[in-house]
Nucleic acid binder design. Structure first.
Lengths: 105, 105
DNA sequence: ACCTCAAATCAAAAATTGTTGATATATTGT
DNA sequence: ACAATATATCAACAATTTTTGATTTGAGGT
């Protein structure tokens, strides 16, 4: 379908996986570096890296390099954009439009 | 992972697929019956049915049976729940937590 | 009861996504 | 320059999701 939809899907795809939700839960407690995120949740190093990429691509998480370490944190602007998008996608253009145009009901 | 995450993922899974986003776009214009939704977007009858089930399960869409036809519409309460959930998942418990606890930085 | 049509369900195939281990890149300390 | 460590990337495999066509269910209409 249209690439706009592809782009939108990317934001929510970040939230579709239980492991990514668990990672977000960790990040709610504040910025964390990859080594810490990996440990408690049954993820290999490359597995974590894979999920962090998806989270960063969605805009919901940002990363900050500091020496060898990468630190991840929730992005406020990412969150705001996501909420706006969610509302935009699911809010009727005009409420109460009457019956179905097609089935004449 | 925990079944809470599974449950949360269900809401956003509805928004992860370009075709489902296209369907939601149609529904923004008001209630539509399945026959109408199917037509303009390259979906077989069973394909549409599959996606509508996922959308309904997420709570973002509700269905209304009327004779042979099923009518779908956006759910306001579903939308509000989804926004609340999105915020809950992506908002830090306390902003500004200081450096990373692990890497003493 | 029988026929027709809308939508749901099922099973198999196709496509996409997630996992794993190996390897590459980049930074720090010696 | 070299060794050690953190993370990213890659390619092969596994798991999940989506698509498709066939069949089933259920509501009218005759």
């Amino acid at each position: 379908m249209s690439s706009v939809h592809q782009e939108h899907a990317k934001v929510f795809k970040a939230l579709c996986d239980p492991k990514r939700l668990a990672i977000l839960e960790q990040l709610r407690g504040g910025e964390k570096c990859a080594c810490v995120l990996q440990e408690p949740m049954n993820l290999t190093q490359s597995g974590l890296s894979y999920h962090m990429k998806i989270l960063c691509d969605s805009g919901l998480v940002t990363s900050r390099q500091e020496g060898k370490w990468t630190h991840y944190r929730l992005s406020e602007t990412g969150r705001n954009k996501a909420v706006k998008l969610l509302l935009a996608i699911t809010t009727p253009v005009t409420d109460q439009e009457g019956g179905c145009l097609s089935c004449d009901r």
